[in-house]
C-alpha cells in the first residue's frame, strides 16, 4: 500500500467520522442530511483511491452511481422535510417524538 493510498484512506475515514458526528449532534434535519452526504462522499473518495490502485474503471463507475444515489436521496429527503415543515413549522428532529415506546 503506497503512501498516497494511506493518505487518501485516512482522509476518507476522517470525513466519514465527521459525517457520523454530524449526524449525531445536529438537530436540524437539513444539517443531518448534509452529514450523510459527507459520509457518502467519504466512501466515494475510498472508491476512487482503490480504483486508482487497481488501475480499473469499476471503482470510478461506482462513484457515479453513488453520486446518483445521493442526489435521489437528497430529493426525497427534501420533499419529506418540506412536508414536515408545512405541518409542524419546524424541522428540528427533537420535536419529532410522537412515535415512541
Amino acid at each position: 500500500m503506497t503512501s498516497y493510498m494511506i493518505n487518501n484512506l485516512v482522509l476518507s475515514l476522517a470525513i466519514f467520522s465527521i459525517g457520523i458526528i454530524g449526524f449525531l449532534v445536529k438537530r436540524n434535519a437539513i444539517a443531518i442530511l448534509m452529514a450523510i452526504e459527507l459520509m457518502l462522499n467519504a466512501a466515494n473518495l475510498a472508491f476512487v483511491t482503490f480504483a486508482y490502485s487497481f488501475a480499473s474503471v469499476d471503482g470510478t463507475i461506482l462513484v457515479l452511481f453513488v453520486i446518483t444515489v445521493a442526489t435521489a436521496e437528497a430529493a426525497v429527503g427534501l420533499a419529506i422535510f418540506i412536508r414536515i415543515y408545512r405541518s409542524r413549522g419546524t424541522i428540528d428532529v427533537d420535536k419529532m417524538t410522537t412515535l415512541h415506546g
Binding site: D94, T97, T98, H100
Partner: peptide
C-alpha cells in the same frame, strides 16, 4: 429505551 428521538436511535445503531 425507545424514546422516539432520532439520534438516540442513531447512537444505538452506531
Amino acid at each position: 429505551l425507545q424514546t422516539g428521538q432520532l439520534q438516540a436511535y442513531g447512537v444505538g445503531m452506531l
